[in-house]
Design a binder for these strands. Structure first.
Lengths: 213, 213
DNA sequence: CAGGTTATCTTGTCGCTGTCAAGATTTGCG
DNA sequence: CGCAAATCTTGACAGCGACAAGATAACCTG
């Protein structure tokens, strides 16, 4: 409430917001706790009363990131998603999975530093209960999506699981390789073509055989 | 030659070796330039004469890592690879690709901190010419391997490219997810079953349709 | 409403880090 | 032989995360 008194009001929330900015602007590796405190207009030791240490703040940021991520790939807040959830089943399970994969990749490219914190950093404490629950929820949704595609084929449990893992690997790997700037042949494409190329790769990963020709 | 004189002899090489140890023991995030200097038995400012800065040393380490990596996935130095290169063609292109993928994953799990530096860190300077050449060589080999699998199917160039990227994504994603400890269902398996599960996932990613059943 | 307890925030400090500057030592070349 | 360049050391500085101690405000019990 009071923004300028000795006591901040809701410094925890303010630190999370400032931390998100610090993370997106400077990246995980240059992320500074003192910098976050400065952004929040507070002394360098203030964060210690709301987060155990630097790792604690980064864990909370990652946890929140996984919740946003779960929403995105669930279609609740898709970036290019003018496709509502109930339309998905009409379009078929496979199309729904592709949409989910596109949201996965889109999240990685849009919130790249946050994605790096969540997936390519040992800073967060993954033994943390909240973080574990949030990340687990996001993955479970994705795996469930994959399984529904192969549901009608009467596969064994092992085979089903292997296919889910294969597709998850492909989507995640695509996101990572694009994020790290490694897949230059795709990154070099102008925007409409790039998105189409990404979609095509996801289709191959999802269906095994090409969907059309 | 002389190991104890004022001049070290070959400090550059010694720093690379010490850096490799520092990296494997402490990881990218706790990697310290002063720590490397101490390991090499030299003052804290000595590395500056052989590498511009911390980033310079990590760039050199990543560059060397990509060369080792390229050798590994080429079958020259496979860990579980009691399969020589000329046997590969007899076993078929697909088996060769699977072996390559297994080596890819094996490298990630064996040299996890080095792999993280190479693929999940913004520390190395990827504009560096040497690093760019080494990393490009490794990727090119892998992509070539994938393309040879689909060579006989008369695919268009775009389709060929998309399949190569899809498989690369799957292999890389699998490696990353295992490395980060995310794919628990696979990591929980005891050793012989785990390797078989990984192989099965790679087969699905490579062939699209399951190879057997 | 009063007084003490607790939560919150600040200031100060420590050891560690990467980087720069300046000096010491050795090598190598003219 | 002697000077210049390369190599390594020492010293310093700012920034970092973490800890301790003190200042301030809010809460809570009576």
């Amino acid at each position: 409430m009071a923004a300028r008194s000795y006591h901040h009001g809701d410094l925890r929330k303010a630190l999370l917001d400032a931390g998100e900015v610090e993370l997106s602007e400077r990246g995980v590796e240059k992320f500074s706790l003192r910098g976050v405190a400065k952004r929040a207009g507070v002394s360098h030791a203030a964060p210690a009363h709301h987060f155990r240490d630097k790792r604690g703040l980064l864990t909370a940021l990652a946890q929140h990131g996984f919740e946003v991520f779960a929403d995105r790939i669930s279609g609740s807040g898709g970036a290019g998603g003018d496709c509502r959830a109930d339309e998905a089943s009409a379009l078929g399970e496979l199309a729904s999975l592709i949409t989910c994969g596109m949201a996965y990749v889109d999240f990685a490219l849009t919130c790249s530093n946050l994605f790096s914190l969540m997936f390519a950093s040992s800073w967060p404490d993954f033994a943390d209960a909240d973080l574990d629950r949030s990340s687990g929820r996001a993955f479970d949704h994705f795996v469930k999506e994959v399984r529904s595609v192969f549901a009608g084929e009467g596969l064994s449990e092992e085979e089903m699981h292997a296919r889910a893992m294969a597709n998850w690997s492909a989507v995640h790997g695509l996101a990572v390789l694009l994020l790290e700037g490694r897949m230059r042949s795709v990154l070099a494409l102008p925007q409409p073509a790039r998105e189409e190329a990404i979609r095509r790769i996801l289709e191959i990963a999802a269906s095994g055989v090409p969907a059309s020709i």
